[in-house]
Design a protein around this nucleic acid. Sequence first.
DNA 1: GCTTTACCTTAACTTTAGTTGAGGTTTTAG
DNA 2: CTAAAACCTCAACTAAAGTTAAGGTAAAGC
Lengths: 155, 155
Amino acid sequence: MSAGFDRGMERQELSVGQVAKRCGVSVSALHFYERRGLIFSGRNAGNQRRYGKDVIRRVSVIRAAQQLGVTLAEIEAAFASLPRHKAPNRRHWQALSEGWHEALSSRIRKLEKLRDSLTGCIGCGCLSMDNCPLYNPEDVLGEERSGPVILDRDP
Amino acid sequence: MSAGFDRGMERQELSVGQVAKRCGVSVSALHFYERRGLIFSGRNAGNQRRYGKDVIRRVSVIRAAQQLGVTLAEIEAAFASLPRHKAPNRRHWQALSEGWHEALSSRIRKLEKLRDSLTGCIGCGCLSMDNCPLYNPEDVLGEERSGPVILDRDP
DNA sequence: GCTTTACCTTAACTTTAGTTGAGGTTTTAG
DNA sequence: CTAAAACCTCAACTAAAGTTAAGGTAAAGC
């Protein structure tokens, strides 16, 4: 590792295959992320990609965000606040995660609501379909806002 | 309503536009669902689609399931247990919802774990990246990589 | 030294979930 | 009765997030 030299000069030591393996994504996905400007690499003498260790966190964050339903375009936008070619520091990541944390909590709340609707409504006796939130997107339970109630596209 | 006649003969009274409006989906989406075999319609004298009221619940369930990250193919499979051209009864829907309830709970658990990882990991000092759940997706997050989590647009 | 594995680029293809448009018919409103 | 709105089919298009293939170079293992 010969540390002490990682200061301003990122070490580019990881091959694309190594990164792929460690992050659990395919090589082609990494190429794709690079084309999208989500990750960066240097090249070795033979024109092969070489990554610094920070790419692993970048990719991990990409995958994590995707789990949240964040699109690559949105991740791209969020990543715009990161230093492009250097390892972002804690505050950089923290700023990102804070926004996503909130989105995630709100998503969880929404899913819980949906789960409760499924339990309480679809499985229950409301076949009369008079006050069923699933059945009555707009009509009966029509919590204002057009479109299906439980499925609502958000405030 | 002139009840007493709805027994075996479903009344097909809703036009595609009406269903679209009530369910908050587009007409083309309804055509599409029909091509996929997710919904059915009769035709009037002029070859226009006419739906029974049960289609609204079908579409609502489709939309709800999509929120859970269930794909149309999976919904299709689940719908195979429903009577094809008649309004499903309570037990039919209940069977569906039970499966999805479990899937939903598990998705919620997963998202909570991810949220906690974001909070506890990305924002914290684990820049050493040695036991960071984000950093090592294969260990922690990569456990279950199936199905998109569809979030709404609400960053 | 040779061969297998990893890597390179570019382009085309895949899947999902629809949307859009063209060209024509039906229904509804005035 | 006529015009507008809604509907019909079919085909082509879109976007996201990659994957796959082709043709060639670099690096690693024995």
